[in-house]
Design a protein around this nucleic acid. Structure first.
Lengths: 183, 183
DNA sequence: AAGTTACCGAATATATTGTACGGTAAAATT
DNA sequence: AATTTTACCGTACAATATATTCGGTAACTT
């Protein structure tokens, strides 16, 4: 990709993230974004069809990155289905958040946009699918598979949410322990 | 409240709900609402400051109503802290949704607005707080109280979500059973 | 019956979106 | 090194949406 393209794209993303920290998605205007990003209006629309697509692509960039990282390490060890042996991908993900990689925490903590969490959960769902066997023995009798799948994923999501909303006063390890206790 | 006021308010709510079934919140305009509600523009703004407040008040009306109903019956029996004896308020709530009371399902099923779920969960949180002792014995050692609280509430929320997203093919009783199994 | 209140309808100022165009500088191609 | 392509800027602009104002009318209240 052209360096100019990259620069504009980055500038827009960066301005957008900054704005998301201040106000909610729906009340952010394209005008504000391009002003902060210091790019022309036409440039914005050359990159992103709409404001919604901007959010979508930002999430994809960000979350795919995060999830690929947690995944990658596990995959590198060829341990997708035996996550127990190595560091749990869940704990791994929590550590990423703890370190605020890519400013992800800033975004997730905003009381702003639920859309963000939707994309986050979408990425998480995929991860859970791969690491599901981790908790297979805890699945009760008569529980539909898809329900269980969804339950784990949303339990983890809401644990993170609870963590962040509470100001992340506890270390990632604790949150992981709580998560393990209830699931 | 004046009958005229009530009529206008109802008309706006009704038009808004109908529109929410068709398209997502952000792409609904005030123009569409007042046209469908058949009220003047000034009237709309006399009732609601913005479109966001409209959603807010609608949710409050609706959810407070739903939660008060489920609650009311439990409270009527003076059984807030012994929900076990009577019909569980959770199951109760599921039945409300199953019957699509106040068109609540239509609203929750739209892939539209997460805001709706936020308000829903806010109402649920209060309910959980009252009925928490129901599951007290299942709380594991070393688990913070607030985490447990949040966990139950969001597990229930995501169970409903899973249910609705899947087309509500199972009866409310099943969903309640799954919920009981995992929590 | 008189006063108050909510409404309508239309006009309007303001803000936002998304597109179009000519000119310019950076990058790729020859 | 010269040429072509590409991305960009800035401005302008049409289309749409938001939110306010105001005079007149009908419905409620006292």
């Amino acid at each position: 990709m052209d360096r100019r393209q990259r620069k504009s794209r980055e500038a827009i993303f960066s301005a957008f993230i900054s704005l998301l920290g201040e106000k909610k998605f729906s009340s952010i205007t394209v005008g504000e974004i391009i002003e902060k990003a210091d790019v022309g209006r036409a440039t914005f629309y050359a990159h992103f069809e709409t404001k919604d697509y901007l959010l979508k692509e930002l999430c994809e960039d960000l979350f795919c990155h995060i999830f690929d990282l947690t995944w990658g390490e596990v995959n590198g060890h060829r341990h997708i289905f035996e996550c127990n042996d190595t560091d749990s991908p869940y704990l791994h993900l929590l550590r990423h958040i703890e370190r605020n990689d890519n400013g992800i925490t800033t975004l997730l903590s905003g009381r702003n946009n639920e859309l963000f969490w939707r994309y986050f959960k979408a990425g998480l769902d995929k991860m859970v699918k791969s690491c599901l066997p981790m908790f297979e023995e805890r699945r009760r009798e008569g529980l539909p598979f898809e329900f269980w799948e969804n339950h784990i994923s949303s339990t983890f999501t809401s644990a993170i949410r609870w963590w962040i909303d509470g100001g992340m006063r506890e270390p990632a390890e604790n949150v992981y322990r709580y998560f393990s206790l209830v699931v």
